[in-house]
């Protein structure tokens, strides 16, 4: 059983600040973390390894500093880690990102067949949820998005049975390996790595692949050049033209305030008054 888990290093968005005057992102000092959704993917892969044995390889496309995220994954118990990094990858949209990752996974496959690819549901920075489907298409793997549970794997028949969160319910799906799973959040809880894994993670020789090592001949299919989308201006949301009408009374007593409020709201929005009466029935 060989699983490849795709992880992305992202800025801890809870700590991103926007410069009040220039409206630019203030990245200085913002710590980088593993995209939180990807930990559910990694944990699920490690659980399959616990159940069936095998290998878990983590892969990321990113700048050299993404090494930290990969070592963290090793300390949780991943067996091998690959950093796909090249200046040519800069500015990639999801189409170019999935191209590079699919190519690199193709290389991994040359040494050891891949049964399952895992990704997170989405990232917290780009937040598109498009990279998983993109990789699956490019490698012609069956795509299972929003998987909430892996019920069974039949190695003889190379079949897998999963539960998938669909619109309005849960689909139980059976498909063939190899396939790509995007893991739903909250479906498992990340383990703590043990001491051995932590020491191993620190010493582990990390593989770093540039464009050619990842098997990509044509520089025009990755990075900015391989991206059909073009990001134009970045700007702050417009404030509404009018501020709220602040309700005041002479005494500002709560009772009088709310009566004044309702009178005003219902005069200006008579339909709303009828709506409230209808709903309250």
């Amino acid at each position: 059983m060989h699983s490849v888990v795709c992880i992305k290093q992202v800025p801890d968005s809870a700590q991103i600040r926007v410069h009040p005057v220039t409206n630019t992102i203030m990245r200085q000092g913002v710590p980088a973390i593993i995209n939180p959704y990807d930990l559910f993917a990694l944990e699920e892969a490690l659980r399959l390894k616990d159940r069936f044995g095998g290998t878990v390889t983590v892969i990321t496309m990113g700048p050299p500093m993404a090494e930290v995220a990969l070592r963290k994954c090793l300390s949780f118990g991943a067996d091998d880690a690959i950093l796909v990094s090249d200046r040519a990858f800069a500015g990639a949209d999801t189409l170019a990102t999935s191209y590079a990752l699919a190519a690199a996974i193709g290389k991994i496959r040359e040494n050891m067949p891949v049964d399952l690819i895992f990704t997170g549901k989405q990232t917290i920075d780009g937040d598109t949820a498009q990279v998983g489907p993109g990789i699956a298409r490019r490698l012609d793997y069956q795509l299972l998005t929003y998987v909430s549970a892996i019920r069974e794997i039949d190695h003889e028949k190379r079949e897998i049975l999963v539960e998938r969160r669909a619109e309005g319910g849960v689909q139980v799906l059976k498909t063939k390996l190899p396939c790509l799973i995007t893991m739903l959040e909250g479906t498992n809880e990340m383990r703590y790595g043990d001491m051995d894994d932590m020491f191993r993670a620190a010493r582990h020789p990390l593989k770093q692949w540039d464009r050619l090592a990842a098997g990509i001949e044509d520089p025009n299919v990755v990075g900015l050049k391989g991206s059909p989308t073009v990001v134009g201006k970045v700007f702050a949301p417009k404030p509404r033209s009018q501020r709220a009408e602040i309700i005041e009374t002479v005494d500002n007593d709560p009772k009088n305030l709310v009566v004044t409020l309702l009178a005003k709201v219902f005069t200006q929005h008579p339909k709303l008054e009828r709506e409230i009466e209808r709903l309250a029935k």
């Binding site: 989308t229 970045v234 702050a236």
Partner: peptide, 12 residues
């Protein structure tokens, strides 16, 4: 973008 603090315009 970035958790909703800014907007960006994208074209194909």
């Amino acid at each position: 973008t970035f958790g909703g603090s800014l907007l960006c315009t994208i074209m194909t």
